[in-house]
Simulated assay, not measured.
Amino acid sequence: MEVFRLLPPAEQRRPCALTIGNFDGVHRGHQAVLAALRARADALGVPSCVLTFEPHPREFFAELTGKPDSAPARILTERDKLDALADHGVDRVCIAHFNASLANLAAESFIDEIIVDGLQARHLLIGDDFRFGARRRGDFAMLEAASAQHGFGLARMDTFTDDGSRISSSSVRGALETGDFALAHRLLGRPYFISGHVVRGRQLGRTLGFPTLNIRIPFARPAVHGVFVVQVHGVGEAPWPAVASLGTRPAIERDGKLLLEVHLFDFSGDLYGRLLRVEFLQRLREERHYDGLEALTAQIRRDAQDARDYFARRDAASAG
């Protein structure tokens, strides 16, 4: 899969079947759009292309208005989103930096400069709630007129539902916020995970007797936070049982950066720089502050035992 920042360079532009959206989660609703896009691209003999945005437009406007907490929590890292799009047959992804210039681009200019000239769309597939351009003036009627003028095909997909309930990024966020990973799995069509490279930390976990793998979270508001039972892919041939904390480590430092800290059970070895995938299985508790390292260590010990008990129950159920 080819990845471009905003638009392909002029010499690499060619007709495509295009869809546009944030695709946070690449959930089953998104997957239905991508399947339809793939079918249309194959019929036309052109590559499929996704135009997405970084940051999420709502993040941009939340920062602009001084209300960063009003932005939606992130479900996937950029790496995981790109991997998911590739898994569903996307040939090209264009990541547009959403800034003041793009926010103020007139809807008509968005069509002419991006959809028609920049991406050379032969076919455009959008969701039923798609709006675009400055002040969100662009709508399906405007695209219909542009389709007739410029000669590209146009289709709109209805909302994807499961047992009558709408599948959306918001519904996935809700499931993750409450720790309902079974529901998140059903909405996503796969287990929920975060992947990243292992980086060096402060080594405090090792000092406390619980060494951790550290993975940076590259945004301010993840859809999950707290302490979890997890299993880690990429350590050995089978997923490795572990306990993990995702947050800013209020027990250790103030105003800390977001970090996913993972303690692998019964493991020794050097994994720095390794790309790992952390799959979330069960939420244990929220992050909290502790008065002293002794209290923190005692809680970590309880968390680790709770996670070990989870795996023991799971293994017993599988054996039975």
Rank of each mutant, 00 (worst) to 15 (best):
V227T: 04
E261R: 05
G247Q: 10
A242I: 12
T248M: 08
E261Q: 11
V243L: 04
L271F: 11
V235I: 13
W240R: 04
P241G: 07
V235E: 12
E261C: 06
V243M: 10
I252Y: 15
L260S: 04
P241I: 10
Q231R: 15
R254N: 13
S245H: 07
I252M: 14
V230R: 06
G256A: 06
A244T: 03
L246D: 01
D255A: 08
Q231M: 04
S245W: 07
V235N: 04
L259N: 02
L271H: 09
L260C: 02
A244S: 02
G226K: 09
L246M: 15
G256N: 08
T248F: 05
V262F: 09
F267L: 06
A251K: 07
A220T: 07
L258R: 08
F265L: 04
V243C: 13
E237S: 14
E261A: 02
L258W: 05
V235Q: 04
T248E: 13
D266Q: 02
I252S: 06
V230I: 10
G234D: 11
L258Y: 05
A220P: 00
S245K: 03
A220F: 00
F265T: 03
P241H: 12
E253F: 02
I252C: 00
L264F: 02
G234S: 09
A251M: 09
L246S: 06
V224H: 03
H233T: 00
E253H: 12
W240P: 01
G226V: 09
L260H: 03
A244G: 02
A220G: 00
E261H: 03
E237L: 14
L264C: 12
V243S: 03
E237H: 09
D266H: 13
V227M: 02
P222C: 04
S245G: 14
P222K: 09
P250T: 08
G269P: 07
E237W: 07
H225Y: 05
A223R: 02
D266R: 08
